[in-house]
Design a protein around this nucleic acid. Structure first.
Lengths: 116, 116
DNA sequence: GACACATTTCAAGAAGTGTTGAATTATCCC
DNA sequence: GGGATAATTCAACACTTCTTGAAATGTGTC
């Protein structure tokens, strides 16, 4: 991932509203939610929600698809995994020893990695 | 990690300048760099660099320590690992099957996980 | 103390982001 | 076509962030 794309993704997640929307969509992957459902959960004017959804779509973190009168939004899990990979690579690739030592302490992986 | 802290960290990484500075500091972990060295690498006025360094320090992603006439900045690798854990947890905890399937496709882990 | 150096803080303006209600577009159903 | 519903775009304003040079702060050295 290019660092310019990374900063644009971080920008998309830098607003409380957008992070909450994105988390909601992740929880509702892969089926997604239509805008009205998101609005109910978020309790903000629809016009403002639209503004934030547009930003999420432009970042690529969220995709949108028309479904009759509704618009269905979905979190892009693959891009999210790319972001995780980007952070992990930035952290480790040029400095593996340092990162490994901290990882051993915090034991991040054992808690969150999927079983394969 | 609280989602409010997460969005504040994403905000810190949402500027190209700050992401570049942070990546530079990660590459130079754990010794860090003094402000002047960062300024040389970044090619922006020192007053503007100061502004962005302050934002990074306030987010917690970077720490600062006086060293004689210099100020030494260091990336906080543990907090970065917390962010990775946060994203991973958001992605997987409520939706492990979905995330696992995507992971298997992109094979993120095999590339970046430390050997233990 | 006086000077030089590293870096920050301040103040001001430029640029960008967020919020809102009104108007618009798109779709469905009769 | 006409009316109802879902959601967006528009335009205006408030608010925040970014950038810059000038001034200030802290530290080392003579």
């Amino acid at each position: 991932m290019e660092s310019r794309q990374a900063s644009s993704i971080f920008e998309a997640l830098s607003s409380d509203v957008r992070l909450d929307v994105f988390r909601l969509l992740v929880k509702n992957a892969p089926s997604g939610l239509v805008a009205g459902d998101i609005a109910k959960a978020m309790d903000i004017p629809s016009t403002n929600l639209s503004f934030h959804l547009k930003a999420l779509v432009q970042s690529g973190l969220v995709s949108v698809e028309r479904e009759g009168r509704f618009l269905r939004y979905r979190a892009s899990i693959p891009l999210m995994l790319d972001v995780i990979a980007y952070l992990t690579a930035e952290c480790c690739s040029d400095n593996p020893e340092c990162c490994r030592a901290f990882r051993a302490e915090s034991d991040v992986d054992a808690r969150f990695l999927p079983t394969r």
